[in-house]
Amino acid sequence: MEITPDNIIYWQREWLTLNATIVFTWVVMAILVLGSWLVTRNLSVKPKLSRWQNALEIIVETINNQIRDASGREPTQFLPFIGTLFLFICLSNILTIVPGYQPPTGSLSTTAALALCVFVAVPWFGIRDRGLIGYLKQYLQPTPFMLPFNIIGEISRIISLAIRLFGNIMSGSLLVAILLSLVPLFFPVVMQAFGIVVGVIQAYVFTILSMVYIASGMRAQRKT
C-alpha cells in the first residue's frame, strides 16, 4: 500500500527511475492521443457526423465555453493548455475504476508538475498579452509594499492547486483501498463511483482555477 504511485518503481538505473506515475501518465497520454488521432483522421464538415467526432466536438466546445466564461476572452489561445490540463486530469481520475490502475494525479509530483506549468503559464500569457513590464507592474499593486505578499500569494495559490488535487485523488484511492480491506463487497464500488465524480470535479476545479489565475494576470495588466 503506497501513498503515492511514485514509490512503485518498475525500473531504475542511477537517478533514472521508471515509476508507476510516469508509466500510467504514458498510458493516459497514449489513450488521449490515439483516440484523438483515430477520430480526427476522417473529420466531416457536413451536418452528418460520426458519434466520436460529435463527442469530441462537444468536449472541445464545452471547454471553449468554459474558458470564455471564466476569462471573458476568446478561448483560442488558451484552448491547448487549458484543454490538455482538463483532459489529462479528468481521464487520469476516471481511469481509477480500472483495477490495478494508479492515477498519476494521485502523485504530488504530477500535481506539482502541473501546478508548475500553470505557474509558468500565468506570466507567459500575461507577458505575451501586455509585455514584461506591464506584467511585472501588477506585483507592485496597489503599493510596492505589497510586492512580497503578491509573490507569496502567487506561490501559495500554485501550491494549493497542486496539493488540493493530490489530496483529493490520493485520499480517494486510499479510501477505496482501505475500504476494500474492511468491506470487500459493494461499498467500495459506491465509493469508487463517488471517486469518479470527485475526480471529474477536481479536474474541473483545477482547470478553472488555472484559467482564472491566467486571466486575472491578464486583466490586472489591462487595468494598469
Binding site: 503515492t4 510516469i22 502523485s107 509530483s109
Partner: peptide, 8 residues
C-alpha cells in the same frame, strides 16, 4: 512525497 525527477 515529491520526486523531482518525476516532476520534471
Amino acid at each position: 512525497l515529491i520526486n523531482w525527477f518525476t516532476v520534471a
